[in-house]
Design a protein around this nucleic acid. Structure first.
Length: 873
RNA sequence: GCCGGGAUGGCGGAACUGGUAGACGCACGGGACUCAAAAUCCCGCGGUGGCGACACCAUGUGGGUUCGAUUCCCACUCCCGGCACCA
């Protein structure tokens, strides 16, 4: 055995052996219980980053542990290969997105293999392959048939200079990122998936999932179910004449129908049909509507905007009193929620209050909250609290005195008696999923637009609609729309000349079901029985940034597949682990021109104060001063990323893996530390040296339990306790840092034992074998080689998880903590079988108890078995 | 504004169900080995007082429950994340 640890020599050798034996190919049937664990598939941006290393190493450690525990484990890998960055890279370098993407995949796959992750590569998929995205198209058409896909006009960001649609992230401060032109909102026809049809199920079945509470709560808020009442505010006679829309009035939705007697005006969104009608011949209103429509689609800014509005001159009637109520256009009313129209009750709604104040409209309080005095001078938060109805007026006196639920029922009944359409209704914040993207590098939407037949689906036999791969976007609209060979086609229905849809699907479509395709990557159908075997996924691992959209779309997609009979599960991901981000220090300085220049930590000499805190740095090249900016996400622009390849080259994959796993819990944010990496490397060297020392001293004979010294018995006790703890940490807690710490404790203790006799060496062998097995999930390369040395002729991958020896856990005497009044005062050695009374007696005789009781008589003695005894005086 | 999570040494963190606060590691200080350095090994390392045995203080702040609180309860401060005019 080599006395030195040489990761660069052993890692490729071990990896070749894994590849040769197809060590990580998972069979699609097995007498063992299945376990399916997946990491969110990476975007092939060029090379792996530390976030990937962390993500896949967590997954990998879990893989190895559960495999050792006797399960049939599958860990696949794929590539989220469509998307905007490929188009941007194409524009920058003039390379086709397909070529760029495929080269990145090839390079990153090599890196994954160099990291030694136990991936079943026979199941690899890339979402840009026609063999994958054809099923996006096929399923899209099935959804369309079932009414779960539909087309309607939607709002997009439009760059008027490039004449192109912009993604939200391409809009910076309301301007296009390339042109700097003020972005407009524009309505164009888009395809939607009716995710709202599943809103209730998506919300209700969250409860049973083994997901972080935080993520479940984020999804609950996103779906945003609220219970309310919809009703019609009848048009006033002259408005009814003008509208002529066949409707009786203005439909509104409210969660506060109890405040109906406080209505003093109504408000509609700028896009509401009533607003459009009212704007005819009303230049002021027309201008205001235009103003509302301008600007990006970003809603966050809207919240802080001042409430503004313009009266329409149109009137509705209060459904109970019949009084005329003016309709305004308000910039705070959202077209996309409810009916795009609201009853306004300034007395009990903060927005309506602000609006009424601004335009001098009446404020009428109709709810009494615990008798608190109401004043219209300024809004108080409790004005919107629930309470009892008051001031309900002569037409509805029976409403007075009712509380919220009773008032709602009374209002619905009253409206019914007045023949006003009204009903209780559930409303969701969730909106349908717009999947159309006016981009090139994505799944083509399989629709043909025929001048005679309208939108016609591409017949299943003609799928996939293949995306041409040789196009290079130039930023001015999608290249597909400029490629007649792609869009010129014949109508599948009538055979006449027709035009293909040139839009592509949102990349979230690709990631909504890839984890099912892994199960049967070669199937001639979307999925087959193999998906039935592996799904639902037992453990999903990925970034918290996907807490809402990806995870919600994937859940929706699964339910839609279920309802189409393709899969028999309700939820795709039984357990979810959201890993923390990887951060690093950021160094920068102002340039003469007033810009900011960033520096990579490895080109700096970092200065610290007496306590080791970073105060600043100097550029190694010229010694000039650089400022310390603090800590932030690893990013290219801030130049604070650490390249996993450098780690592999300098220390080997095992060190990189060990470092990211031992630093902290997987869900915590991790701050990068070069010293920490070095510490990890040192540990692996030490482990190697310990095994080398053991192995080079020759073969050991088995020991006999009864003949061990107390020191060796203590070491075995520690070993078997560590086996218990590490298994619990890996399997139940998914907390690898404490598992690693426990093994370090074990080895620290082992090194204090100097017994080199046959018994000492035999126990050392047991401890080293155990340690190697316990660490194998984290550092499989070094563990493979060390195992070979410890147990020649056997293979690490065939070893089960070590068993706990109950005999090793037996103790003759145990140490208890002695407390007086809850304060630690001493320790006490008692026989393991000592009774409560014996422990109490021994504690009372203890010297520390006598000293701290200071003559006072013990009132009470608390004994916590196996832990402590507390004397209360 | 609403919802969720958090705050423990110089630093990352541990303490899982109310039971020895600071495991394990990093950094730092001292020593051994060496011509020297690196590597390695040994010792120390929350604060205050004391030569020392030891004592007191200490888990963001203030209170409470308990024999006993980092852990539970109440109030507050700050930090992070999500949503954000959702009627």
């Amino acid at each position: 055995m080599d006395p030195q640890y040489h990761p660069k020599a052993i890692e490729p050798e071990v990896q070749r052996e894994w590849e040769r034996t197809r060590a990580f190919a998972a069979p699609d049937a097995s007498p063992k219980p299945k376990y399916y664990c997946v990491s969110m598939l990476p975007y092939p941006s060029g090379k792996l980053h530390m976030g990937h290393v962390r993500n896949y190493t967590i997954n990998d450690a879990l893989y190895h542990y559960l495999r050792m525990k006797g399960m049939n484990v599958l860990m696949p890998m794929g590539w989220d290969a469509f998307g905007l960055p490929a188009e941007n890279a194409a524009m920058a370098n003039g390379v086709a997105p397909a070529k760029w993407t495929r080269e990145n995949i090839a390079y990153m796959k090599k890196q994954c293999q160099a990291m030694g992750w136990a991936i079943d590569w026979s199941r690899e998929i890339a979402t840009c392959d026609p063999s994958y995205y054809r099923w996006n198209q096929w399923f899209f058409l099935r959804l369309w048939e079932k009414g779960l896909v539909y087309k309607k006009s939607g709002m997009v960001n439009w760059d008027p200079v490039d004449m192109t649609v912009l993604a939200n992230e391409q809009v910076i401060d309301g301007r296009g990122w390339r042109t700097g032109a003020v972005v407009e909102k524009r309505e164009i026809p888009m395809w939607y998936m009716r995710i709202t049809q599943y809103a209730d199920e998506l919300l209700d079945s969250l409860d049973g999932l083994g997901w972080p509470e935080q993520v479940k709560q984020m999804q609950r808020n996103w779906i945003g179910r609220s219970y309310g009442v919809e009703f019609v505010l009848p048009y006033a006679p002259e408005t009814a004449k003008r509208m002529a829309d066949g409707k009786r009035g203005l439909k509104v939705f409210t969660t506060r129908a109890d405040t109906i007697m406080g209505i003093t005006f109504a408000a509609v969104a700028a896009e509401h049909p009533l607003a459009t009608e009212a704007a005819k011949g009303n230049p002021a209103l027309e201008a205001f509507i235009e103003e509302c429509k301008r600007g990006g689609v970003q809603e966050a800014e809207l919240a802080t905007m001042e409430k503004k509005g313009v009266p329409t001159g149109l009137f509705v009637l209060h459904p109970v009193t019949g009084e005329k109520v003016e309709v305004w256009v308000g910039n705070y009313v959202l077209m996309a929620y409810g009916e795009g129209a609201v009853m306004a009750v300034p007395g009990h709604d903060e927005r309506d209050f602000a609006f009424a104040k601004k335009y001098g409209l009446a404020i009428v309080p109709v709810i009494d909250v615990d008798g608190k005095p109401y004043s219209t001078d300024a809004w108080q938060p409790w004005y919107s609290d629930y309470g009892r109805n008051v001031n309900s007026g002569a037409r509805f006196p029976e409403l007075d005195g009712k509380d919220y639920p009773a008032a709602i029922d009374a209002v619905v009944a009253k409206l019914a008696s007045l023949a006003v359409p009204a009903a209780k209704r559930v409303q969701y914040r969730l909106r349908d999923w717009g999947i159309s993207r006016q981009r090139y590098w994505g799944t083509p939407i399989p629709i043909v637009q025929c001048p005679k037949c309208g939108d016609v689906g591409v017949p299943a036999g003609e799928l996939p609609v293949v995306l041409p791969e040789d196009l290079v976007p130039d930023g001015s609209g999608s290249p597909l729309a400029k490629t007649p060979s792609f869009y010129e086609t014949k109508c599948p229905k009538c055979g006449g000349a027709a035009k293909r849809e040139t839009e592509t699907m949102d990349v979230f479509v690709d990631s909504s079901w890839y984890y099912m395709r892994y199960c049967s990557p070669d199937a001639p159908t979307m999925v087959d029985e193999r998906a039935q075997y592996w799904m639902p996924m037992d453990q999903y691992i990925g970034g918290i940034e996907h807490a809402i959209l990806h995870l919600l779309y994937a859940r929706f997609w699964t339910k839609a597949m279920r309802d189409m009979g393709l899969i028999r599960i309700d939820e795709p991901f039984t357990n979810l682990l959201t890993q923390g981000m990887v951060l690093n220090h950021i160094f920068s300085r102002r340039t003469n021109k007033g810009g900011i220049e960033y520096f990579a930590p490895d080109e700096l000499e970092i200065a610290t104060d007496a306590e080791g805190r970073i105060t600043g740095a100097r550029l190694m090249a010229d010694g000039s001063a650089v400022d310390y900016e603090g800590i932030g996400t690893m990013s290219k622009s801030k130049r604070n990323g650490v390249d996993p390849q450098d780690m592999i080259d300098r220390y080997g994959a095992d060190t990189a893996r060990f470092y990211v796993m031992q630093a902290n819990a997987p869900t915590d944010t991790m701050i990068w530390s070069d010293e920490g990496v070095n510490g990890a490397f040192k540990f692996l060297n030490r482990l190697w040296a310990l095994v080398h020392e053991q192995v080079s001293a020759g073969v050991v004979a088995p020991f006999r339990e009864g003949e061990l010294s107390s020191e060796l018995r203590a070491l075995r006790l520690k070993l078997h306790r560590t086996i218990e703890k590490v298994g619990d940490d890996y399997g139940r807690r998914l907390q690898f840092n404490t598992a690693i710490a426990a093994v370090r404790e074990l080895l620290n203790l082992q090194e204090t034992v100097k017994d080199r006799g046959p018994a000492g060496r035999a126990v050392a062998q047991e401890v080293l074998e155990g340690s190697v097995l316990l660490l194998a999930p984290v550092v499989p390369h070094i563990a493979t080689v060390l195992w070979r040395e410890l147990r020649p002729g056997t293979r690490l991958l065939d070893q089960p998880w070590p068993a706990v020896d109950p005999a090793a856990l037996v103790q003759n005497s145990i140490e208890l903590v002695v407390q007086v009044n809850g304060k630690l005062r001493g320790h006490l050695q008692v026989p393991a079988a000592a009774s409560r009374e014996q422990i109490e007696a021994a504690a009372l005789r203890h010297e520390a108890v006598a000293r701290f009781a200071e003559g006072r008589t013990p009132k009470k003695v608390v004994v916590v078995p196996g832990r402590l005894v507390n004397v209360v005086v």
